[in-house]
Write a protein that binds this DNA or RNA. Structure first.
Lengths: 112, 112
DNA sequence: GGCGTATATGTCGGACTTCTAGGCATTAGA
DNA sequence: TCTAATGCCTAGAAGTCCGACATATACGCC
């Protein structure tokens, strides 16, 4: 039945958040989910079933570029970096998010 | 292929926004979409294929209660009003939205 | 009378996103 | 040895939103 209150999250912002985190520098998928959880103080929990499809989606659209490298722990991992197109896309999405959250704020704050 | 840039909208906030608008007082579906467009200064355009299913969904969950009445124009229309459960739900969703948009702001604002 | 536009409700199918639940493999530590 | 953490992945189900379509009434205009 899905508990909408407890798990109320990403709602279409996942791609933007991933792009933003990758914008800090090349990073692999597993680390992205940790970073996101960490920065958001445990609010955003990206599950692997959402994360990896999202990464492939972003790669398909030409916003991320993967490269296999050795991770901090000495194991092989797929590091993603932002492409030029990806940087532009991130800008668009952030702009879009700003306008969208403003609009929501306006409606929620509206009185009678 | 869907142009995500031009059409970037409700992202899971539709239910909350509808509840909030109905919270102002009984109102029918068609008027809800107009109100939303108006208050948000044309940002949110709820399409009929989203609006009516959403209203039925909210009714099914016991958050809205419908009543057929005559509209301002003299025609029959289905006026919705917020139930007690609906008011509580709205509170939860607003709280949830606040925390979610804070978390997004934190990530977007994070530096290196 | 006939026509177009705004009002008003609705359904259907498709595209898309996220989650749950699983699988596979390696490494570090108890 | 066995468990947890790291690291990648997919398949299927559920849910949301949109575009397109269908229906009907009221009103103004020609």
């Amino acid at each position: 039945m899905m508990d909408k209150d407890k798990k109320e999250f990403l709602k279409g912002t996942l791609d933007m958040l991933i792009l933003k985190i990758v914008a800090f520098g090349p990073i692999h998928g597993y680390a992205i989910s940790q970073r996101m959880k960490e920065i958001s103080k445990d609010f955003f929990q990206v599950h692997q079933g959402s994360l990896y499809p999202a990464l492939h989606r972003l790669e398909d659209r030409g916003w991320l570029e993967p490269e296999w490298k050795e991770s901090e722990t000495g194991r092989e991992a797929k590091f993603y970096k932002l492409t030029r197109k990806g940087r532009k896309q991130l800008g668009n999405e952030m702009e879009s998010w700003a306008r969208m959250s403003d609009a929501v704020k306006t409606i929620l704050g509206a009185v009678e």
